[in-house]
């Protein structure tokens, strides 16, 4: 190999690590160049959504299932942290992990029966779950504050260092998002991840390769619920006010749209999907006013033309083109 080839090979071999390092550096320096609190607030929101979408993409894109109910886990995390810290005076950090543990348990109890379903039935069941959760938030007002929401949630802090401005929150939230990204990237590059990919491809084939399909689906469901719960806790501590509207079925479908836009089965795509859908209403007013139309329209277009999702669909196509060209060159 020439030294140029060696460099390329090194980059190819360590592409995941290098990209993560690059992204981390960019995020580390980002607040130096961007100090508009509004913009930072938006990118923070992207990170919170990305954490949910990463988990959901494992469930939808890798395990091949569908959930229209992840806003419920997101909301459980948010309300869990709010109630634990304000009502029960539990310190915020332990509360966050405690809540994540409880959400995991809820996901396990819900997941074991409903993951026997698949396709449309699973979509309806998870949608129903989100409805139930949303109704509880609205009705149980002595605990949740009802439709008027829950205010006065404290910021996360280390001693007297509170994550109370956008720049501090940027490091906190993106720290969590990068950690989630890294864990998910590691997961999909292992034999567990390949088992998941097999499961998304063909359930019978996956089982014949030794994948315990039922258990794997439940495990991934629980994992994605934990990620959503952590994102919810961060959401609550960031805005210090939460209301049921942030966790209704439209939010749940938005999470699914983020997965689809980014690309099913693409971890990096999850970041892109979360970013694009979070930013769209900011870029153009028309997207804000007709948000549901735009989101629905995007979903239909992507599913019609790139059923694997926008980013991974494009990447797949490029890969195929490159491979075919190489084969052609090799033949001539």
């Amino acid at each position: 190999m020439t030294s140029k080839q060696k460099i390329f090979y090194f980059i190819y071999l360590h592409r995941t690590g290098l990209t993560v390092t690059g992204l981390s550096l960019a995020l580390l320096l980002y607040p130096v160049f961007e100090n508009n609190p509004y913009t930072l607030g938006l990118t923070n929101l992207i990170a919170i959504n990305a954490i949910v979408v990463l988990g959901l993409n494992l469930f939808i894109g890798y395990a091949g299932q569908i959930s229209l109910g992840h806003a419920a886990f997101f909301g459980l995390g948010a309300y869990g942290s709010a109630i634990a810290t304000v009502t029960f005076n539990i310190p915020a950090w332990p509360a966050m992990f405690l809540v994540a543990g409880m959400v995991a348990l809820v996901a396990l109890i819900v997941g074991i029966p409903i993951l026997r379903l698949s396709g449309h039935y699973l979509a309806m069941a998870t949608l129903g779950m989100n409805f139930v959760f949303h109704s509880i938030l609205l009705q149980w007002d002595e605990m949740t504050g009802g439709p008027s929401g829950f205010a006065g949630i404290p910021y996360l802090s280390f001693g007297s260092f509170a994550f109370d401005d956008e720049i501090r929150l940027h490091y906190l939230i993106w720290g969590f998002a990068l950690l989630a990204l890294l864990l998910c990237l590691n997961l999909v590059r292992s034999s567990v991840g390949r088992g998941l990919a097999a499961l998304a491809g063909d359930e019978v084939a996956a089982a014949a390769l030794g994948v315990d399909t039922r258990k794997t689906k439940v495990k991934i469901f629980v994992l994605s619920a934990i990620l959503a719960s952590v994102a919810g806790s961060l959401f609550a501590h960031t805005y210090s006010f939460i209301s049921p509207d942030s966790f209704d079925i439209f939010v749940a479908t938005d999470f699914v749209i983020m997965v689809v836009i980014g690309g099913m089965g693409s971890i990096w795509g999850s970041l892109f999907g979360a970013g694009l859908i979070t930013m769209l209403p900011e870029w153009m007013d028309i997207f804000e006013t007709y948000k549901d139309f735009v989101h629905g329209g995007l979903l239909v277009l992507v599913l019609l033309f790139l059923p694997q999702g926008l980013v991974s669909g494009i990447i797949d196509n490029i890969k195929i083109k490159v491979t075919l060209r190489r084969r052609k060159n090799a033949e001539t």
Partner: peptide, 14 residues
């Protein structure tokens, strides 16, 4: 797949 181990935690920590 079955020889790769099925611990999700192990896989995530790599």
């Amino acid at each position: 797949t079955s020889e790769g181990g099925d611990s999700m935690l192990m896989a995530m920590l790599r």
